[in-house]
Design a protein around this nucleic acid. Structure first.
Lengths: 339, 339
DNA sequence: CTGTTAGCGCGTTCAG
DNA sequence: CTGAACGCGCTAACAG
């Protein structure tokens, strides 16, 4: 199956009895400056011959692809959701978004995808928290292709055009407040070093929250990597007779805690109060429902695409900050309050 | 920011003091037939100038893109996982996979993505259960681009080169057997009409299972669209004094059932036994763990890519069937058996 | 082994 | 409003 030769504008031009320039104008430039009659003829011919524009030729010729590349650590959960929204927003802006997963923060795969996208001459790049270091990234993206970061804090301006970050710190800070207000005598943060930068942000918020609202409340910081949640919980409950609060890295971790607690018959939210992040569907559908922080996917996607468009169109940055912070919204459910 | 002109092989050729053909040979054709010295010179020049091959020009020239497109209904859950594995397998085969989501079985978005991919002249297409009809699909994919379906049953040969399908029917059939063996007096299938074709497959298996193993066992078939699970469960338990079995559409639905049961203090697996499909992480991490069917992502991805490669390379179909069935594996957990 | 040349399909002048 | 001609960056013969 050698690729069957596809029909080109030349053939359409012949069939319609006009020149290729005319065909190009009618088909790919919104029918500017052409007589109704010509337009009809061309469109008919194209339709009948099954003409389909060759993106490569077009891109090559005008030095613009109308494609933007997205690299995320994985397809699951938050990343995948964001990808969907970005795809939609990109489409609204007249661009197409190609999605690549770096298979869970693998720097090598990440580099490979980046390289491929640049070889494609994408007009822009959106990346979620690059696993590569600054230097490596710089040496790769020095081509002048605009790069917008998602959840990337403190990147140098010569690499990233800007960043759109979720307000994890604020969410964690407020989580501590909620738990403290509910009378927890100790508050634990169950982190995940796998997502380094995000974990850091959450810790910043947690620490700030403890400093601000944690008077007389003890604290603990634990990483879930290889942690036996059940054992940890048992130990925790033994050490504290009254109410314990847990801020989980995300709803995934929260579910594990919840399940362990259910198994051990720990009273929720009486003895144990729990807050997750992401507002995954599991948060809504577990029992009890997990209090969590909802992510405004739409906003984040819109802002990211806008930022990119500004840069691509060389428009002024419209006075926005280089790093935008998008706040999350608390959704309270059964793990922190009685119905 | 007009795109800064990128360096081309012409410039590399000049810098290295050779012809562009030589540069092309060295850089993009695996160093075929070139003196060590020339290779060194060219590579050095390319390195220093920061040369990056232009995929569009290459693809245009050789009429081959080494890109394959994937369209899935969504990024979440099974689809996203599969996409990751497909990406890896595609890479092993020397291809790149661009992923597009049709935003939940939206035929319009699906068509748009398909169109874009064909305009890119991808070498192959992988689609998960197209929402479009046969006719529409045919009119779009008649370009001779090989198309492999994932979970597509009974598609005409002139459209799809082949299909790699998960053995949902077999899994449901066996689920019924398991529940019947465990002494359930009634067995319910909680479906989801949203995923039409998949729901059909599951029902086929369920029906076959009831016919084969359901002697003396009553059955019920319900759709979860807009269903009040808690109310349904209450009703179900009232109508049946002994053990009730539920085959859920997937682990997502299973979790909702599980949560409702936990809330109502229904004994699991004593009074209610539950089996999901997909073996999502929620199945492992809920309490009790949800018995489910594990999906061999690797196998399915490998087979899909192989099928596509065979067709692209015009190799014989190696005697394989056009529709391949990949079996699932039962993972038993707390919702069907006591620890 | 290396250089020359002719396209790949389309966008864009610039005369008519 | 139309048509001929050139160029985008690269590959694939074919000569040398």
């Amino acid at each position: 199956m050698t690729k069957p030769k596809q029909v080109t504008i030349v053939e359409v031009a012949e069939a319609a009895g006009v020149s290729i320039a005319t065909v190009s104008n009618v088909l790919n430039r919104g029918g500017i400056r052409s007589s109704k009659e010509t337009i009809r003829k061309v469109e008919l011919a194209a339709e009948q011959l099954g003409y389909r524009r060759n993106t490569m030729a077009a891109g090559l010729s005008r030095n613009k692809t109308y494609e933007i590349g997205l690299i995320i650590p994985a397809m699951a959960g938050y990343y995948g959701q964001l990808a969907e929204h970005l795809q939609i927003e990109a489409h609204h802006a007249g661009y197409h978004l190609s999605v690549f997963s770096s298979g869970g923060f693998d720097p090598d795969i990440e580099r490979r995808h980046l390289e491929v996208l640049l070889q494609r001459r994408v007009d822009g790049l959106i990346c979620h928290g690059l696993a590569m270091g600054f230097e490596t990234t710089r040496s790769i993206v020095n081509s002048g292709t605009p790069l917008v970061l998602i959840n990337g804090w403190g990147w140098p301006e010569d690499i990233a055009t800007g960043a759109v970050n979720l307000g994890f710190a604020g969410a964690c800070l407020q989580s501590v407040k909620v738990l403290a207000d509910h009378g927890c005598e100790t508050i634990c943060y169950l982190g995940s070093k796998r997502s380094k930068v995000i974990d850091e942000q959450r810790l910043i918020g947690f620490d700030a929250g403890m400093a601000q609202f944690g008077g007389g409340v003890s604290q603990e910081i634990v990483d879930t990597m290889g942690l036996d949640i059940e054992a940890y919980l048992r130990d925790l409950m033994q050490r504290h007779a009254k109410s314990v609060g847990v801020v989980a890295f995300d709803d995934h971790v929260a579910l594990r805690v919840l399940s362990a607690a259910n198994k051990m018959n720990i009273d929720i939210p009486g003895r144990l109060k729990l807050i997750g992040i992401n507002n995954d569907y599991i948060a809504k559908e577990s029992y009890p429902g997990i209090s969590s922080w909802d992510i405004p996917y739409n906003d984040q996607a819109q802002m990211a695409i806008n930022k990119l468009m500004h840069k691509i169109g060389n428009k002024a940055e419209s006075g926005e900050d280089r790093e935008i912070e998008v706040p999350l919204t608390f959704i309270e459910r059964g793990t922190t309050k009685l119905q």
